Simulated scan of single mutants.
Amino acid sequence: MKEELLNDLVAFIHQQSRHFDIPVTTGTSIENDLGITGDDGEDFIIQFSKKYSVDISSFHFTKYFYPEPSMLLIPKEIKILTVGDLMKAIAARRLDDDVING
Rank of each mutant, 00 (worst) to 15 (best):
E77R: 08
H14W: 07
V10A: 00
K79V: 01
S49A: 15
K63Y: 13
T62G: 11
L34Q: 05
R94P: 02
T26Y: 10
G27M: 11
H60Q: 12
D55I: 08
M71N: 11
I90Y: 00
D85S: 08
N7V: 01
A92N: 06
G27N: 15
K63D: 15
G102P: 02
E4V: 09
M1W: 14
F65S: 02
K51C: 06
M71K: 13
Q47I: 10
A92P: 09
Q15K: 15
R94W: 09
K51M: 14
H19G: 02
N7I: 04
T37F: 10
K2Q: 14
S57L: 11
F44Q: 06
T37P: 10
K79C: 11
T62W: 11
L73I: 14
P23C: 02
S58W: 08
M1Y: 14
I80C: 09
G84E: 07
P67I: 06
D39E: 15
F59C: 05
P75C: 06
E77I: 13
K2G: 14
D33E: 01
V54L: 03
I46M: 09
S29P: 09
V99I: 14
K79I: 07
D33R: 05
K51L: 13
L72K: 08
A11I: 07
T37H: 09
G38Y: 03
F12K: 02
I80D: 06
L73T: 15
I56K: 01
V24L: 00
S29A: 11
E3K: 12
G84T: 06
I74A: 12
E77N: 11
F59A: 03
R93F: 07
D96C: 13
L5H: 00
N32H: 13
L5F: 06
I13L: 08
I100A: 01
G27S: 14
N101L: 15
D8Q: 15
A92E: 04
K50Y: 14
V99P: 02
L6C: 06
S49Q: 10
Y52R: 09
S29Q: 06
P75R: 00
I13S: 03
I56P: 01
S53G: 07
I90G: 00
T37G: 05
M71S: 12
G41A: 08
S49P: 02
T82C: 04
S29R: 04
I22R: 12
